[in-house]
Design a protein around this nucleic acid. Structure first.
Length: 907
RNA sequence: GCGCGCUUAGCUCAGUUGGUAGAGCAACCCGUUUACACCGGGUAGGUCGGGGGUUCAAGUCCCUCAGCGCGCACCA
């Protein structure tokens, strides 16, 4: 019988949370569970999307809603098509944005600055904020129906990602691709940090161009928009062919400019435009990037006259400590008074501001860390390349395809102009630069150690299905064969040293391997298997791990003791690898899992859970990476942190466990699609391509799908000041997440901005109700006529099903070609205006008056169409379709129970 | 300055390899004989920004002009 819930209008509020909970309980968001449950074939092709991690700064906006919708459509579609589908979620620490937000909050509530709190306390506050923010964001993502694998959730600042960051930093440093240097950088006086070129916006504003002479006895007039910087001039550049100034080239003048003594050299440089201004440029090496370049070419001294607070550093009573703006006025006044000002013109100039803080950028000379994008380096193959070439080649070769493709040009254009990437920030929140300095200013780096782990071969106890633990059970015959196999596998690994558990099964294995690679063995009792106490010698139980049993029975080593032993072992391993040793560790499965958990920084409460996830076969080799801070005395770590995009740029592989050679990395990388907004193509997309190309010699993804900005119904950007923002949570509450998703995706073409209105969303809420009621009609018909799966279809019904088949193919093609806007519209249109308005309407008469055969045929046809359209609609509107699916007659539901893992209508 | 995109019905936008225009919303008229008023049936509405070209055929390709939006760069 039809569920009476259909007698009421559809209620997304009651349905959606319930369905999501069922999804989470099913475990089907995890591809591994799908394989285990027989939903996905073990050899199925993988399909992977790494979720662009939302910033931990606050709550989600409509743009996130769009991102989640498009990605969920792709993921659900691929899952239904039988792919091994992974959608990995995560959160970004968003260094500057988050720090600024928390700083403001603290300033507001406590009237304190971060310096009042101190680095440690301030970071604690940020972490607390980030934790809360994280919780909100996760629950919001769930509300929107995202079917992502929460068991793999990553954070750009967690232990694993931190290891990836430090590993890459060191590798790039060793390759000469990361360097520390004195450069004129974009300084944000408001945010008190440097920012990269990409974080600076240029805005046209009115300004003045002043033409003047430094002093009466100086022969060449110059023009500038920033007279206050001119007290830092060390040269005047003219074009080498400029007849007006030729005679002065090479001469030096000692003059006094507004009371400041200057030594100005006249130099010739091709870059000077004779047409502009006076054809002579006052060169200010310390406060202009181009002048800095000129100064380098001509070996000019650099004279800093503006400080970090955008205040003057010169020693005259009029100018000292004055803000740049005031200094400008003072200088212009003085020039006028002395009759040195020749001209004052109104022009438009570009004002550079920092994206995040809005502060006016002050170019300052600073010692910072950079990524060299033009420097040649050798790949492992010996081939020479540069980071820029890697970025360019990925798209040029078609290895990475950008949708829409016209963004290729924007991408290449950006690469052409790209300079070295300043990656150090003077903020506290983020990955601290992994470099230490000693008293003499020498740099020291953490050591990245790669250690191989291998299990002993099968033991006699194993053969007998007995828990061995710290019992001494020798290798079985099979175990010795396995040890030899392991030795073979390690032949090319250049092992120089083996440490092993002192239990005989491990030691025997170690000896066999040592013989083949000719290296020494040291045994440690710290490496022994877990002590299972009274459980030793007992039979193993399938699906009930010895570790869990040990806890349940409360016998043997406690988790605290295990944690302590694991920590000691990690120290031993570090010590054993302190030179150039390549270390192999032979030990035991469960203790290795505990070692791994401890290494990841997990608390001992998670040992059991992690052990049950931990898989390690005999002869399998795992890797363990360590980053150890330099041990020398009196070292100070660099106080700066890394640009947040540095960690983001490793996202596709750091999320899969790199630098460990994980199984997941082999299966899911390169990922398939990167779906994100076009505004971060440079910040993120390009840098992921660069870093992945550098680290893995591969692309991070084969397709980039760029979506546009979500705007209000008048096409305006949503903003706080306009008050036209929409909260996706409000939308979900008022209309349902399904309706919000449809409204976001219909009419949304890649790369183009979309407008959204409550009216549009309401239309799709009505559509959800339409689905509900059409389903009710079909279920009622089944109730009255009965459902015969094998009923013979009449020609009329056959034709309708064929038509739907054609539509299914059409929609499939649209999704495959990333035309979600078309697919969504087509299925919407078919459901409402063909299925409901025509097919159902026309069936009514026959259902009443037709003969048995006709009625049976019609009911089967209605059911088939409903089931098929629910499948086609599911990626777009997961909740309502799932809810209806659950009410279809049991006899009709073939297998899986959840629509989410049903098969797509097209093969 | 360089580059990119947009300009199609009142509004928001589709129109995939060229075959003489579509959707949603809004408007107007009619309808309540139970799946749904969160509804049904129907009507009206566009010389596809202007100009030129290629073609049997152009919203679709080429050139050009204009308006709007965006990105990058920048001469002090």
């Amino acid at each position: 019988m039809m569920d009476p819930k259909f007698l009421k209008p559809y209620s997304p509020q009651d349905t959606e949370p319930k369905i999501y909970k069922r999804y989470e309980e099913s475990g089907f968001f995890s591809p591994e569970t799908c394989v285990k449950e027989g939903i996905t074939k073990p050899d199925a092709k993988p399909f992977t999307i790494m979720m662009p991690p939302p910033n931990v700064t606050g709550i989600l906006h409509m743009g996130h809603g769009l991102m989640l919708t498009i990605e969920d459509i792709l993921i659900r579609y691929k899952r239904m098509r039988g792919f091994r589908t992974l959608w990995l979620p995560g959160i970004d620490h968003a260094a500057i944005a988050t720090q600024t937000k928390v700083e403001k909050d603290i300033q507001k509530t406590e009237k304190k600055t971060r310096h009042d709190l101190g680095r440690e306390e301030f970071l604690k506050r940020i972490e607390k904020f980030a934790d809360e923010s994280h919780e909100t964001i996760v629950s919001q993502i769930k509300t929107l129906g995202a079917s992502c694998d929460w068991s793999r959730e990553a954070y750009t600042l967690d232990e694993k990602r931190s290891l990836a960051v430090r590993t890459v930093f060191k590798k790039m440093y060793d390759d000469g691709l990361i360097y520390r240097g004195h450069r004129v950088v974009n300084w944000d006086p408001k945010g008190q940090t440097t920012v990269s070129d990409d974080e600076v916006s240029h805005e046209e504003t009115k300004g003045k161009l002043y033409t003047f002479r430094y002093s009466k006895d100086f022969p060449i007039p110059i023009a500038t928009t920033r007279p206050e910087t001119k007290v830092g001039d060390t040269a005047v550049a003219v074009h080498p062919d400029d007849a007006r100034y030729k005679e002065f080239i090479g001469k030096e003048f000692d003059i006094s400019f507004v009371g400041v003594p200057l030594r100005i050299k006249i130099i010739a440089d091709e870059e000077v435009d004779t047409e502009y201004g006076t054809g002579a440029v006052g060169v200010t090496p310390a406060h202009s990037m181009t002048d800095f370049e000129i100064a380098k070419r001509h070996n000019l001294p650099l004279k800093q006259v503006i400080n970090e607070y955008a205040k003057m550093m010169v020693d005259t009573s009029e100018l000292k400590d004055k803000k740049t703006k005031e200094a400008r006025e003072i200088i212009v006044e003085q020039l006028k008074k002395e009759g040195l000002l020749e001209k004052e013109e109104e022009i438009t100039i570009n004002l550079s501001t920092a994206d995040r803080s809005g502060g006016v950028i002050e170019p300052l000379p600073k010692l910072q860390w950079f990524v060299a994008v033009n420097k040649e380096f050798a790949r492992p193959s010996g081939e020479k390349t540069t980071l820029k070439k890697i970025m360019r080649a990925a798209v040029e070769s078609g290895a990475v395809k950008i949708i829409p493709n016209y963004f290729d040009k924007t991408y290449f254009h950006w690469i052409d102009k790209l300079g070295d990437w300043c990656i150090s920030r003077q903020i506290w929140f983020g990955h601290r630069i992994p470099v230490w300095y000693d008293e003499n200013g020498n740099t020291h780096h953490p050591k990245i150690i790669k250690v191989l782990l291998a299990r002993h071969g099968e033991s006699v106890a194993h053969t007998e299905h007995i828990i061995a633990g710290q019992l001494d059970s020798p290798l079985s015959k099979k175990g010795r064969v396995e040890a030899k196999e392991l030795a073979k596998k390690l032949e090319n690994s250049k092992i120089t040293k083996i440490i092993s558990s002192d239990l005989s099964r491990a030691e025997e294995t170690a000896r066999i391997v040592a013989e083949s690679c000719g290296c020494k063995i040291t045994t440690y009792k710290e490496l022994r298997e877990v002590d299972y106490g009274s459980l030793s010698k007992e039979k193993t139980v399938e699906g009930y791990s010895a570790l869990r049993r040990k806890i349940d029975v409360n016998t043997g080593e406690s988790l605290e003791e295990l944690e302590k032993r694991a920590k000691n072992t990690l120290e031993i391993i570090k010590k054993e690898t302190n030179s150039t040793e390549k270390l192999l560790v032979i030990g035991h499965r469960t203790f290795f899992s505990i070692l791994d958990s401890t290494h990841k920084g997990l608390s001992n409460e998670r040992f059991v859970e992690e052990r049950e996830k931990w898989k390690m076969n005999t002869t399998e080799i795992k890797t363990l990476f360590f980053v150890s801070s330099p041990q020398e005395k009196n070292l100070t770590q660099d106080p700066d942190t890394l640009d947040t995009w540095f960690s983001s740029s490793l996202w596709t592989f750091s999320t899969l466990g790199w630098p460990e050679e994980t199984e997941a990395l082999k299966i899911y990388h390169p990922t398939d699609i990167l779906e994100t907004g076009y505004e971060i193509i440079f910040f993120w997309v390009a840098r992921m391509i660069m870093m992945t190309g550098y680290v893995l010699g591969d692309v991070p993804f084969h397709t980039v799908y760029l979506h546009g900005t979500v705007r209000d119904d008048k096409g305006r950007k949503m903003s706080k000041s306009l008050g036209n923002g929409m909260d996706p949570m409000d939308i979900a509450n008022e209309f349902g997440a399904d309706a919000g998703r449809m409204a976001l995706v219909v009419g949304n073409t890649p790369g183009t901005d979309t407008n959204i209105s409550k009216q549009k969303i309401k239309g799709y809420k009505n559509f959800a109700n339409k689905i509900w009621n059409a389903s009710r009609f079909v279920l009622e018909s089944i109730d009255t006529v009965g459902f015969d799966e094998k009923a013979e279809l009449r020609e009329e019904e056959k034709k309708r099903i064929e038509e739907l088949q054609a539509l299914s193919e059409d929609i499939t093609k649209d999704i495959e070609n990333y035309r979600f806007y078309l697919a969504a519209e087509k299925i919407y249109h078919y459901f409402w205006h063909t299925f409901a308005d025509v097919i159902i309407e026309e069936s009514k008469a026959m259902l009443k008056e037709g003969d048995e055969k006709a009625r049976k045929s019609i009911v089967l046809c209605l059911y088939t169409i409903l089931a098929t359209t629910l499948k086609l609609l599911h990626p777009f509107m997961p909740f309502v379709t799932e809810e209806v699916w659950g009410s279809l007659p049991e006899s009709a539901l073939k297998t899986r129970g959840l629509l989410m893992v049903e098969e797509w209508p097209i093969e």
